[in-house]
Design a protein around this nucleic acid. Structure first.
Length: 426
DNA sequence: TCTGGGGTCCTAGGACCC
DNA sequence: TCTGGGGTCCTAGGACCC
């Protein structure tokens, strides 16, 4: 049996943790640049605030109901996420926890007898809440897709379920499938849901479970669809994954706080994003050969990925590297080839690919003394920055004024990672 | 003039997730 | 005036190879 554990309204919960007066009050948290709403408390949901809706459109509603609004505070959320995951790892053992996102983790519960699962799930929920202050929901079932479904149902009626739902019999599974609309299944997005309903009259998860594998293969994305239907049938087809599996592409891209016309500002931004990407690269012990930079001018569609993005160039390095300074140099040079004077830009991004394990870099066998020093330097920088959950140490190319930085006008203090922003009790 | 079979690699595009 | 960021997987089709 597997479980998915999910922090309730995670970003909002993090904000409330240090603002007790906001308990039972409506709260929302905004995306980068204060653009969209990405987290809502239950009270805000009930007032009709839409998920992922633009902030400026929701503003009248927010002001009318006096809803508290916060910019994203990733230092805080990242730290609290880490605490939640550490709690799970301590309870269940590292190898039984697969961190799936900042606020979710899959758990392998096969070490427990089935008749104890309800109690185990409850224990997990209460322990996480007691140790971190974050409320979570737990869904338990034979497969990941069914666990997700259980998790979702556990939140529907919190009073009754206490945010825990275990689907351990065929009857419970059937009933859960029956009351779940097809669009609420993990792996069925907007497009598939529309197709399923309009063309084939499939409206709930139970109906979808009963389609043939051929149908799933043809209409739901090939083997992806086949796996999905099998999971609904309680046949495990998405196994627990090793978190150490390396990413094949690492990207850091951001909108600017306001449009930028100065090439030096763009270079600073690109250097900053490159540093972040390099940090992620080193965390997975990787090294990259391909550096891709793109910039998007004001008025252009920024919802394109790196393939379609305007003004994108890449460079292939002679050898793969994970050293920030060796990646910044070519990245900044690419800005020169992309930039057009007199144009205002609203977004830039850096992508690293051609990633190999850094132990296998060609020529790495006989590394010189100086490269070892550089490696130690990178480790030191990473350790210090990690301890702050922020880049307190940075390369000069990243600039110091950062006029291009994103808007975060409503950010709360970084309570858990900065001494001078510590929560005060009077 | 006829023109097989088996394979790899790359790109584009479409879907999905939080 | 203002709509985020960072990924994943799969398929199809074309180029190219022996």
């Amino acid at each position: 049996m597997k479980a998915i554990i999910d922090c309730n309204n995670f970003y909002c919960s993090c904000e409330r943790l240090f603002k007790p007066h906001l308990h039972n009050r409506p709260v929302v948290v905004l995306s980068n640049n204060d653009g969209c709403i990405v987290s809502r408390s239950d009270e805000a949901k009930r007032l009709g605030v839409e998920m992922a809706g633009p902030y400026f459109m929701a503003k009248p509603l927010i002001e009318k109901h006096n809803i508290s609004v916060f910019s994203s505070n990733y230092n805080l959320y990242g730290d609290l996420s880490w605490r939640v995951m550490e709690t799970l790892r301590m309870m269940l053992g590292k190898k039984n926890v697969e961190v799936y996102s900042v606020d979710e983790a899959f758990l392998d519960l096969s070490i427990f007898p089935e008749n104890e699962l309800q109690a185990v799930a409850m224990k997990i929920r209460t322990t996480v809440e007691q140790w971190t202050g974050i409320k979570v929901s737990v869904g338990v079932a034979p497969t990941k897709v069914l666990a997700k479904l259980a998790n979702r149902l556990s939140k529907k009626n919190k009073q009754q379920t206490q945010c825990v739902m275990v689907l351990d019999t065929e009857e419970k599974i059937i009933e859960a499938l029956r009351i779940t609309p097809v669009e609420d299944i993990w792996g069925v997005g907007f497009r598939y849901a529309q197709k399923l309903k309009e063309f084939w009259g499939i409206y709930d998860a139970l109906q979808l479970r009963n389609v043939s594998e051929e149908f799933a293969r043809t209409h739901l994305g090939g083997v992806v669809g086949v796996r999905l239907v099998r999971e609904l049938k309680a046949v495990p087809s998405k196994e627990m994954e090793d978190e150490l599996v390396s990413k094949k592409m690492i990207a850091t891209t951001r909108m600017f706080g306001s449009p930028v016309g100065d090439i030096n500002d763009i270079k600073e931004a690109v250097a900053t994003y490159t540093s972040r990407a390099a940090e992620k690269l080193r965390r997975q012990h990787g090294a990259a050969r391909i550096v891709n930079v793109f910039i998007v001018a004001k008025g252009e569609d920024h919802n394109t990925d790196y393939r379609g993005a305007m003004h994108s160039h890449f460079i292939t390095l002679p050898t793969a590297t994970s050293f920030t300074h060796e990646l910044i140099k070519p990245a900044v040079a690419l800005v020169d080839t992309l930039y057009k004077k007199g144009t205002l830009y609203k977004k830039a991004g850096v992508m690293l690919s051609g990633i190999v394990p850094d132990a296998s870099i060609q020529g790495n066998l006989f590394v010189s003394e100086s490269r070892n020093c550089e490696r130690k330097l990178m480790d030191m920088i990473d350790n210090i920055n990690f301890s702050q959950r922020d880049d307190v140490l940075k390369f000069a190319a990243s600039g110091t004024t950062r006029d291009w930085k994103m808007r975060q006008e409503l950010r709360s203090p970084r309570y858990t990672t900065r001494w001078n922003e510590l929560y005060e009790v009077h």
